[in-house]
């Protein structure tokens, strides 16, 4: 389980996060929405050990990430917004390299399988990543999460800059991953996709988590109205 407990994060005297608390249960997809600078990416960075909170705690399976990230690191996979990976290597090679760095050993066939599961078309496996689109690179990142057998997946703005087809494909992958029991915490600007992909949505503004809603309880237009109300007021 992911748990944010009264997290405060100060950045140069300004509050990036202001007593944020929420829980994400196993297998759930939790999406953070909000304007730029609302604190969404900061939260992801706190859960992936890239930042430490000023006060409060980001916990994974009961372990505080700031204090004991190594205890849960093997369960975690993170895909940053602009993951470029190594352009001179192809998908298999990239995956092989990153698995090796994580002390994971797979055959080429097994690596191909992960890529297939991540939704990457086989014709692209041997192409260098410098020729890949963002969506394709993200699939390589997801393949890595699969190879790592990650239980928690953190995605920072995964759909920004993707074309509509890639966005739809990505939604499918998220659903598949969720079905296998992976817990996902992601950020997004796309309310329409968030309501489709996530189980819960957290609306953020100026470092505050204003409300967590269950997506089943809202239609797209209701969510949009709620969101706009928060943003205007």
């Amino acid at each position: 389980m992911l748990e944010a407990i009264s997290i405060v994060k100060d950045y140069k005297g300004q509050k990036a996060l202001n007593y944020v608390s929420f829980k994400v249960n196993l297998g759930e997809v939790f999406c953070l929405v909000g304007a730029n600078g609302a604190g969404k990416s900061t939260l992801i960075k706190l859960f992936t050990g890239q930042l430490t909170p000023t006060t409060g705690s980001a916990n994974i399976d009961g372990y505080s990430v700031a204090g004991d990230f190594n205890a849960v690191k093997h369960k975690v996979a993170y895909i940053p917004e602009n993951l470029m990976l190594y352009g001179h290597l192809n998908a298999i090679e990239n995956l092989d390299l990153f698995c090796s760095v994580s002390n994971l050993k797979y055959t080429t066939n097994e690596l191909s399988l992960f890529l297939r599961q991540a939704g990457l078309n086989e014709v692209h496996y041997s192409k260098r990543l410098e020729n890949y689109s963002k969506g394709m690179r993200q699939k390589v990142g997801i393949a890595y999460a699969l190879a790592k057998k990650a239980e928690y997946l953190f995605l920072d703005e995964p759909t920004s800059g993707l074309d509509p087809k890639s966005i739809i494909e990505f939604s499918e992958i998220i659903k598949q991953l969720s079905k296998t029991g992976i817990t996902i915490l992601m950020t997004s600007h796309d309310l329409h996709r968030s309501i489709n992909d996530a189980d819960k949505i957290g609306i953020m503004k100026d470092g505050n988590l204003l409300e967590v809603i269950e997506t089943d309880d809202y239609t797209h237009s209701e969510l949009e109205e709620k969101y706009m109300n928060y943003m205007i007021n």
Binding site: K45, L83, M84, Y144
Partner: peptide
Amino acid sequence: KGIQSFLETNA
């Protein structure tokens, strides 16, 4: 290229 944060969290 985002590899550092990717690796720091994952590897």
